[in-house]
Amino acid sequence: MSSQTVDLLRQRLSALQPVSLTIRDDSHLHAGHAGARDGGGHFHVDIVSMIFAGKNTVARHRLIYDAAGDLMRGPIHALSIRAEVPGAV
């Protein structure tokens, strides 16, 4: 399920036109955690996109959560995010 979730998340985040996108499954670090027991995974997203230009951290994260959509209410229990604009990394 984990690699399928990564693939689905990658597809959805492509709507943000990333110039760079890395998704890491950190679920193994949270074994036994309540969300993990219910089947939700822990993931880290490192994304660089011009869409984030002029937006603060909260606005950037909202764009990512909106793109992820229903994945956030099922296969993804927790999402750690690093969202930058090109040249700021």
Rank of each mutant, 00 (worst) to 15 (best):
Y65E: 01
Q11G: 09
Q4V: 08
F43A: 07
D66Q: 14
M72Y: 05
R24K: 11
M1V: 08
A83W: 13
H61Q: 13
H30P: 06
D38R: 15
S27L: 05
L13K: 02
S20Y: 07
L71A: 02
D38K: 15
G32S: 02
H30S: 06
H61V: 11
I51E: 10
H77N: 04
H42I: 08
T22S: 14
I23A: 05
V58S: 01
I51F: 04
N56F: 02
H30Q: 10
D26P: 13
I23Q: 05
D66M: 13
K55T: 01
V19N: 01
A88G: 10
Q17I: 05
A31G: 11
I64A: 05
L21D: 04
G54T: 00
I51K: 00
M72K: 03
V6I: 15
I51H: 08
D66R: 14
Q4A: 11
G74Y: 12
R82C: 10
P75Y: 07
G40D: 04
I64S: 01
S49R: 02
Q4P: 06
G35S: 04
G74P: 00
H28M: 11
H28K: 12
L79N: 09
I51D: 10
D66I: 08
R24T: 15
D66P: 06
A78K: 05
H61N: 13
L79I: 13
V6H: 11
L9E: 04
G69M: 01
R10T: 09
D66F: 06
D46R: 10
L29W: 15
A53R: 14
H44R: 14
S49Q: 01
G41N: 04
H77G: 04
D46L: 07
F43P: 02
L21S: 02
D26R: 15
L16V: 11
A59T: 10
L79P: 07
A53W: 09
V48E: 00
D70N: 06
T22M: 13
R37I: 07
V85Y: 15
S49C: 02
Q17W: 05
H33P: 04
H42F: 08
A34E: 06
L21R: 11
I76A: 03
G74T: 12
V89H: 11
F52G: 00
